[in-house]
Design a protein around this nucleic acid. Structure first.
Lengths: 207, 207
DNA sequence: CCTACCGATCGGTAGG
DNA sequence: CCTACCGATCGGTAGG
């Protein structure tokens, strides 16, 4: 089936582009580079896409949209603010550990995005950050948290997760799940939530 | 004095380059763009520098070196691990709040750095992260902290600071000093240090 | 500090 | 999927 071949080819291009963009940067990667990995010539790529920019937009905005959806699901799954922060942080970190290249592109190639995609990505990021901030404010309001500045606490949690995309290597040290669980606890510490007794560590472990 | 003029011109080029590199990316900025801001022609820039790459290397490595020096000074200033973490985090955050463009270049343009500068920057970052990790391990060892994973706690603190360079805007909301002080406390929470009584907030404030 | 200019590379199109 | 090719732009040099 021609249609299937075209779809898989498109996926190959997409995943090659993600890898090269992440390694060399968007502008440091030529269409020729992408084609070379797939063992074809650069102009052939245009049978599967309309521009290099399209690839970047698809990856960065698509990844951000996925993150937002997952976070909304976490919020909907429980009414307990403590569990919302814990699972929200786990979800956030897991996303960054599992899609490090896509996430890095969204962070590093903002300047390479053309409008209106650039504004859309920035708006989504701002919305996501605000959702976190409101969550922490709710926890403060009902006395479960004591975050001095909810905005700053929100930014801190988000940035910690973004960092995971930089240093986390699958198969080395902790698993993605372990890192995520760990960050769930760190997030709770950060907002000043009372830790349930079973999470208070009896002793110290290292990675 | 010709020498003074040359020095200031060089500084103008440097600061223009930092701004444009941060806004449009290193590869998205041409020497012509830099020259246009200074109202001269691109080839004239080469009277003051030998290559575009040299500008990027100077900024990214120089900024990282400064950060390392400041951190060493903080460690040397006291033997109390709690104060070392607090002031270390304040120093880290202040650096990122005061030099956001330079720091962003170091984070986003790693792929644009040619060797051996690229490796030098990455080595310095790794050394800095390891110094933080050892500091937290010392606090664990003497019973002042209870960080589950010192490595993860160190990464978290570093990444939070890097985030500051993204969202901090001077003159809006908290001052750089306030943000830094706040992060000093967050860092202590993160490593599980016992908070001195005067820092436990009586109620909640927002930014 | 300038003009004139070079070789290289780029994203993308035409046409098959 | 290919070859042939285009206009544009780039970093940098020569020579004054």
């Amino acid at each position: 089936m021609v249609n299937i071949d075209r779809t898989t080819r498109r996926e190959q291009i997409r995943s090659t582009a993600i890898t090269l963009f992440a390694e060399r940067g968007y502008r440091g990667t030529s269409m020729k580079d992408i084609a070379a990995v797939l063992d074809i010539r650069a102009p052939s790529l245009y049978n599967h896409l309309s521009s290099k920019q399209e690839l970047l937009q698809e990856v960065t905005i698509g990844t951000m949209r996925t993150l937002q959806c997952r976070f909304d699901e976490v919020l909907a799954a429980t009414d307990d603010v403590v569990e919302q922060v814990r699972h929200g942080a786990e979800c956030h970190v897991l996303h960054h550990a599992l899609h490090p290249k896509e996430v890095q592109l969204g962070n590093r190639e903002i300047a390479s995005l053309e409008e209106p995609a650039r504004t859309e990505l920035l708006t989504r990021r701002r919305d996501y950050a605000r959702a976190w901030q409101r969550l922490i404010e709710r926890g403060n309001a009902c006395g479960r948290f004591d975050a001095r500045s909810p905005k700053l606490a929100a930014f801190s949690i988000l940035e910690m997760g973004i960092g995971v995309a930089t240093w986390f290597i699958p198969g080395r040290g902790m698993s993605a799940q372990e890192v995520a669980a760990h960050f769930g606890e760190i997030a709770l510490r950060l907002v000043g939530a009372d830790l349930p007794a079973e999470l208070v560590p009896p002793s110290t472990t290292s990675t």
